[in-house]
């Protein structure tokens, strides 16, 4: 059974139909990529799944319907989103940001352990734990955003363009960490414009175009397919 099961999800902004009915499945422990060009509706899909945007259709998570469940309760259920643009709390320190990630938990001892885990995942953050997050580089802010999401102990982690605007070295570091998080058994839905990068770490992928899923297949097949090669990999 899938951890996440999405059927006919539609979202519109006023009269603009940004998602025109998509189906999507993620199994427990799977790393799935959702790729598509700018404006395809990727961010809209993640926001709707996180509960930040209202949509129609069925979304089942861990066997439960998420219908009408507000965003702040979805985190509690284990569904975390690292938003596009990172959304760190600029006027809080790195450590306070990480504590915000554990806001929905009250197991103090385990929170302390998880904080240590995040610092081993991102040693750079340990060095900067007292620094205001707004003064960090883009890559470091991405680490804060991912570490913060990990502090909620997610079962499903959704990442919206984690490589956006980062230097190649930093992108490499972020993607190495994505693999590590996946190896821990966390299911991941990875949204990227950088299709090659995403499909190299994912086991399966979906291609979103104009608010519709146009292709879905194993990551290797998508990487090799002519359509993907032409549209997203510049071949």
């Amino acid at each position: 059974m899938s951890l996440l099961e999405v059927r006919d999800l539609k979202v519109s902004y006023g009269g603009i139909h940004a998602l025109k009915g998509i189906d999507l499945d993620i199994a427990q422990g799977e790393l799935v990529a959702l790729i598509g060009s700018n404006g395809a509706g990727k961010t809209t899909a993640l926001k709707a799944l996180a509960g930040l945007l209202p949509g129609t259709g069925q979304v089942h998570y861990a066997g439960q319907s998420l219908h009408n469940l507000p965003a702040h309760q979805r985190v509690r259920a284990g569904l975390a989103l690292v938003p596009e643009g990172r959304g760190v709390f600029a006027r809080m320190s790195v450590e306070e940001n990480l504590h915000m990630g554990a806001y929905c938990r009250d197991d103090k001892a385990a929170i302390v352990q998880d904080l240590a885990l995040v610092y081993t995942l991102f040693p750079r953050l340990a060095e900067r734990r007292a620094q205001l997050a707004g003064t960090l580089s883009g890559g470091e802010q991405q680490m804060v955003a991912m570490g913060r999401a990990m502090m909620s102990r997610p079962r499903l982690l959704m990442l919206d363009e984690p490589s956006m605007g980062l230097a190649p070295m930093m992108v490499e570091k972020i993607f190495t960490t994505i693999r590590e998080i996946s190896a821990q058994g966390v299911s991941i839905l990875l949204v990227e414009q950088n299709a090659k990068l995403a499909l190299e770490v994912a086991s399966r992928g979906y291609v979103l175009e104009g608010g519709k899923i146009t292709l879905s297949d194993g990551a290797d097949c998508l990487l090799g397919s002519d359509a993907v090669q032409r549209a997203y990999l510049g071949a």
């Binding site: 930040l52 509690r76 938003p83 504590h99 806001y103």
Partner: peptide, 24 residues
């Protein structure tokens, strides 16, 4: 306090605060 941190989070970025589980 936890409440104070939630207040500062909502003041700074309401949707990110909601993603952390804060009831805005």
């Amino acid at each position: 306090t936890r409440l104070g941190r939630a207040m500062r989070a909502v003041a700074e970025n309401p949707s990110a605060a909601a993603l952390m589980g804060v009831n805005i």
